[in-house]
């Protein structure tokens, strides 16, 4: 062959190649380890973020339902659904009570004070005027019903 090879090349090449192979193997293992760790960390982060979003960002009824589903398991599906409805109902009822209280308060006087207290605080003249208004005003009767 018209080629020349440096002296001692074939004596050295085996050890040189083996060292290179071992170094690469070591580096590859390290790389795989780092890659796996990163994959696990990414999966855990994704799980935590998903859990956070499920618990905090869904509407209250759905959250209650989902939280119950996660803790109680699939056999309690009907009960969990009912719980969500109960929570919704309680919220609507509370809202309704607030509105009713507002309606029962007329000019700062609540229904709980009682009509007798209001009448006792009036003078005789005022009472007479009130009686006259009651006879002449056709809407007075409706107002009275509302107050009662």
């Amino acid at each position: 062959m018209p080629y020349s090879v440096p002296d001692g090349f074939f004596d050295r090449i085996t050890e040189k190649t083996l060292n290179e192979a071992l170094q690469r193997e070591k580096a590859r293992r390290k790389y795989v380890l780092i890659w796996r760790s990163m994959a696990i960390a990414a999966s855990l982060t994704a799980l935590i973020v998903t859990g956070y979003l499920l618990i905090n960002l869904l509407p209250p009824g759905k959250t209650g339902q989902t939280a119950q589903n996660i803790t109680a398991g699939p056999q309690n599906e009907v009960q969990n659904g009912e719980l969500g409805i109960v929570i919704d109902t309680l919220l609507v009822k509370e809202d309704y009570d607030n509105k009713e209280n507002e309606a029962n308060t007329v000019n700062g006087i609540t229904n709980e004070e009682g009509i007798d207290d209001v009448l006792s605080s009036l003078t005789n003249e005022e009472l007479m005027e009130l009686a006259a208004m009651f006879i002449s005003d056709m809407f007075m009767e409706e107002t009275d019903n509302i107050l009662q």
Binding site: M1, Y3, S4, V5, P6, F9, F10, I13, K16, T17, L18, E20, A21, R24, E25, R28
Partner: peptide
Amino acid sequence: ERIYWHIRRLVVLHEDTEDILQETFINAYR
């Protein structure tokens, strides 16, 4: 030696041959 000469005849230069020879055996090891 056998693989070296096969590579050398194809790529001619000794430096390239050495690199490819190493690459060949490292891949075989892996």
